[in-house]
């Protein structure tokens, strides 16, 4: 529970459906003196209040160390390797599911329910499928593609068939506060400033100034640190040029930022590792699917070929400008989320 409207309405729905509900909030690690946004004192007070209103027990479970190990360290490490990591994926897989499911079981719970906007469907062959939310605007299957058959079998998404506006309406009907935790672009564990400040403070060696090269490896400027940039980025380069320049690649060995014009940017082929197939096994043959390379980007059709060792090769039908190593590529067939992996550096 976050104290926000989604998890609160989820709890109310479960309670109404006759479930024996236990509310849980995870205490997550946070940079410096500020509290993690997911479990700040006011969020905790709000969640407690809601548990009190709906009359079920509520516990705060400490996951600070686990979160630091499983989410924060790989995040720092990812930037050290020149990629743009998405810490929410590790958090969902290792903390919000693996870790929490174990704790929930110890509290006597059979299922873990969250306020995510996504659906779970059981097939006649006893397999679980992850489906997009009916509210495509709010669909969160992109960050849930890391879930396994086992975790899906123990998961309930009470908001599966609801739109955000219906959820708000239900909150009113249940007399729950409709407070919204702001959807911040900043990471939950970064206190003051943004992730760049956090990296500089944590390990100054990660983000050092270096050269900006054109595609012909000629030095045309200097960058303040690779972590400040992401693939496809145009702003902040501070180079005067007759045509717009974009970040097309990062060379971690030379600590160099490679920029070029729009034609240099688009790619149709890339690889992804650490792939999770929701079905539990990779497809034997190449499959046609749509691919989403960022949480908020549209899907692009393409072919996915499973390789050895949890990797895939992805061939898009049309080039995309912002294929970013470290971000997830998530595969869909219509409403079904097939799985996804982490985009590989070149």
């Amino acid at each position: 529970m976050s104290g926000g409207v989604d998890s609160s309405v989820s709890a109310a729905l479960l309670k109404e459906q006759g479930y024996d509900v236990i509310g849980v909030m995870l205490r997550l690690w946070s940079d410096s003196d500020s509290q993690n946004r997911c479990c700040a004192p006011d969020a905790q007070a709000e969640a407690r209040h809601i548990a009190g209103l709906l009359e079920f027990p509520f516990y705060v479970i400490d996951a600070q160390d686990q979160f630091y190990q499983a989410v924060v360290l790989p995040f720092i490490d990812g930037y050290a390797q020149g990629i743009t990591p998405n810490p929410c994926l590790n958090c969902n897989r290792l903390i919000r599911w693996d870790f929490l499911l174990e704790r929930a079981a110890a509290l006597g719970a059979k299922y873990l329910a969250t306020g995510h906007y996504a659906r779970i469907q059981q097939t006649p062959t006893e397999h679980y499928q992850l489906l997009k939310s009916r509210d495509l605007q709010k669909d969160q299957s992109y960050v849930l593609h890391v879930l396994t058959q086992k975790s899906l079998s123990q998961t309930i998404f009470p908001l599966a068939n609801l739109s955000k506006s219906q959820v708000r309406k239900l909150a009113g009907e249940y007399s729950l506060p409709v407070a919204e935790r702001p959807d911040s672009q900043d990471l939950c564990f970064v206190g003051q400033g943004d992730y760049r400040d956090f990296l500089r403070k944590t390990d100054p060696s990660i983000n050092k100034p270096g050269p900006i090269l054109n595609p012909e490896s000629k030095i045309i400027g200097e960058h303040p640190g690779l972590a400040d940039f992401t693939i496809g980025q145009r702003k902040g380069l501070r180079i005067s040029s007759p045509e717009s320049l974009y970040v097309i690649r990062k060379d971690i060995d030379q600590n160099a930022l490679i920029v070029g014009n729009k034609e240099h940017l688009g790619r149709t082929e890339f690889f992804a590792d650490q792939v999770n197939w929701i079905a539990g096994v990779p497809p034997q043959d190449p499959i046609q699917a749509t691919i989403k390379i960022r949480y908020k980007s549209p899907e692009t059709p393409g072919t996915i070929t499973a390789l050895k060792g949890h990797s895939v090769q992805i061939q898009l039908e049309s080039p995309l400008p912002d294929i970013t190593p470290g971000q997830a590529a998530v595969f869909y067939q219509n409403d079904i989320c097939l799985g996804g992996g982490i985009i590989r550096s070149d």
């Binding site: 007070a45 407690r48 209040h49 548990a51 009190g52 209103l53 027990p57 509520f58 516990y59």
Partner: peptide, 18 residues
Amino acid sequence: SLHQFGQQAETALDLSRR
């Protein structure tokens, strides 16, 4: 208190305050 006896009392306190 962390347990449900405590939580009941805390809820009463919380609602009174609100």
